[in-house]
Design a protein around this nucleic acid. Structure first.
Lengths: 147, 147
DNA sequence: TCAACATTGACAGCATACTGACTATCTGTA
DNA sequence: TACAGATAGTCAGTATGCTGTCAATGTTGA
């Protein structure tokens, strides 16, 4: 009999839901969602990318990203600026307010990680991270046809 | 600087997305989504639960579950029957077709797991499972007030 | 140069996930 | 019995994530 409850997929979904709920709780006062936080975090690292570039580096679906940016723009944390050499594209820039949040939000994320991984040792967390990267990965195997 | 890309939460979300995509691919011919598959899998184990009971054992939000059942009912895989002693409640039962799918869909799930964990050894998969259960868990710690 | 093709971002449509509010019903207690 | 509070399920609203389609714009090759 198939054991859903202990299947990796099911456990990933529940783990993800818990991670989401904890982070949501920590950043609630900023009226942000976890994906919005993640997008800001990518922008703290590199500002001014186009939506397509952001979609690739952040591994966020192109159309999902559009909506995320809409909402962050409405909250005044990012802005779309016309691309200087490509009239189809926008460059996404943090506003001053969006940059300011790096400190406080990073602390929220640190607290979230601590709560999430409460039952694991540091070594286990590293192991988990390593395995999740492998799980997601395999791009080198599947993305390119043998050539 | 906060490193989103290697944060457990971000990796969980991407791992989950990959698990979803792979399973989606395997069960595509049955026109089911991964959550619909999971719900069926819980019903293969125990049939006739109410929505609230299913919501608890399956750890699926009450309102989300309602929609899932709507769609599975429309597909002819489950049916709502009035509860014999509680006029507010339904008992959710598999149809013959819903029961028939246990074999083929379990095989799809097995193939998905194999593809998903391609880069990990069996020992690592067990470790991962154990850690994900801990991640999600902690019910004994948080859910009950000290009493 | 111009036509074929590719790319950028928007939009509609669907499923999941959650919140909060609501109706119908049940339960426990005075 | 009657009423207060709890519970079952629905609905509206919002955000994410994905597919498919489209218009506008870029790019490339004959």
């Amino acid at each position: 009999m198939y054991d859903v409850e202990n299947s990796i997929g099911f456990l990933l979904s529940k783990g993800y839901q818990r991670a989401w709920a904890l982070l949501r709780e920590e950043i609630e006062q900023y009226e942000l969602t976890p994906p919005q936080f993640a997008l800001l975090a990518f922008l703290w690292r590199e500002d001014g990318l186009t939506q397509t570039e952001l979609s690739e580096t952040g591994q966020i679906d192109r159309t999902t990203l559009g909506g995320l940016i809409d909402r962050l723009e409405k909250s005044g944390l990012v802005e779309r600026r016309p691309h200087p050499r490509d009239r189809r594209a926008y460059q996404i820039h943090l506003t001053a307010r969006g940059r300011e949040l790096e400190g406080p939000l990073s602390e929220c994320a640190t607290r979230t990680l601590a709560r999430l991984t409460n039952g694991l040792t540091e070594t286990e967390v590293s192991e988990l991270r390593r395995m999740l990267i492998i799980l997601r990965g395999e791009r080198t195997v599947y993305d390119f046809p043998a050539c």
